[in-house]
């Protein structure tokens, strides 16, 4: 059973796999996600990084914050290159050119995962390459200034679906990456959030140990484009879980298991409050949208609980 102490000792210092001096925003949750996931690997890790916040801030020439083999890729092909690296590794191992066991981690933001890199991801999962795909989800194209993505939630105002007199922001509900990934019948899919370090670590461990591809979707509030005080990143992550907006669950060999069940579900307003992308929802004429959102969250949660209770294999 890992403790926060064990994880901290693995992520701290210049010999950790991700080091200080990167240029992510003050209060960004991505480093906490990535360092925890990297710490969960007991073998050397090769990181394949799709374009996104993490990539542009962690490797600004001539500096790199990576202390593990890392490759910068375009938006769409992180999973495809991970598949290639895994195949090359297998070929080299077969010929006796490498002996060491390694882990392969592809990392992308929600833009690079839910939208642009989706085809490559689906292909790599279908071919059952042994790698883990980590999607850090800040619910939009945040690196380029908050454009709508497939992960942007209902009602959010972005620069491409701005709220105003003619629109209330994004009119569609978000994609469910976990269930889409689980539909590939892969051994492990997990949904985690940045504030729950132990849960994230355990899921990453399971993902690395899985006998085949694994996918991990991690919520990571964006202080810059959700526009809240940078000190509150972990608080918003917590609220997302406590409101059931982002349930923490996993699908292991098709079986759903919910890791955290909030004793008392908090109203979704608690999560929406203080974020500039949702502030228009609090106007009187938009109150029904919050109710609609609450209904959707509750329906999704009921469905998830039913999936767990019945033990139906996804």
């Amino acid at each position: 059973m890992p403790t926060l102490q064990d994880i901290a000792l693995k992520t701290d210092g210049v010999d950790a796999r991700l080091v200080s001096g990167h240029r992510m925003c003050a209060g960004c949750g991505i480093p906490a996600v990535v360092k925890t996931v990297l710490a969960a690997s007991d073998k050397p890790v090769i990181v394949l990084n799709a374009t996104g916040c993490l990539e542009v801030t962690s490797a600004v020439y001539p500096f790199t914050a990576w202390n593990t083999p890392w490759m910068h890729l375009t938006f769409e092909n992180a999973a495809a290159v991970a598949a290639g690296v895994e195949s090359a590794y297998k070929a080299l191992k077969r010929r006796g050119r490498v002996e060491e066991d390694i882990n392969i981690l592809a990392v992308g933001g929600d833009g690079g995962t839910y939208d642009i890199g989706f085809q490559a991801l689906s292909g790599a999962l279908e071919r059952r390459h042994k790698f883990m795909y980590l999607a850090y989800d800040n619910e939009g194209y945040m690196n380029t200034g908050n454009q709508r993505s497939g992960a942007t939630p209902f009602g959010a105002s972005t620069t491409t679906v701005p709220a105003g007199t003619a629109s209330f922001g994004k009119a569609q509900w978000r994609k469910n990456l976990v269930e889409i990934a689980a539909a590939h019948r892969i051994p492990y899919v997990g949904q985690a959030a940045v504030h729950n370090t132990l849960d994230l670590y355990k899921k990453a461990e399971k993902g690395f140990k899985a006998d085949g591809p694994a996918v991990l979707a991690v919520l990571q509030p964006c202080t810059t484009n959700w526009a809240y005080d940078p000190a509150l990143t972990m608080q918003y992550s917590k609220l997302a879980v406590e409101t059931n907006f982002w349930p923490l669950y996993e699908v292991e060999n098709g079986v759903v298991h919910i890791n955290v069940k909030p004793a008392k579900r908090r109203p979704v307003e608690d999560f929406l409050k203080g974020q500039s992308r949702f502030k228009h929802l609090f106007k009187t004429e938009n109150q029904h949208l919050i109710a609609e959102m609450q209904q959707m969250i509750d329906d999704e949660w009921t469905r998830l609980v039913k999936l767990e209770e019945t033990g139906v294999q996804l």
Binding site: G13, S20, I30, A32, T197, T233
Partner: peptide
């Protein structure tokens, strides 16, 4: 010394030692 801040710190700016 609960290590919560260490694990959360986005800049790995909190040194620790065993």
């Amino acid at each position: 010394h609960c290590m919560i801040c260490v694990n959360y710190c986005p800049d790995m700016a909190i040194p620790i030692e065993k």
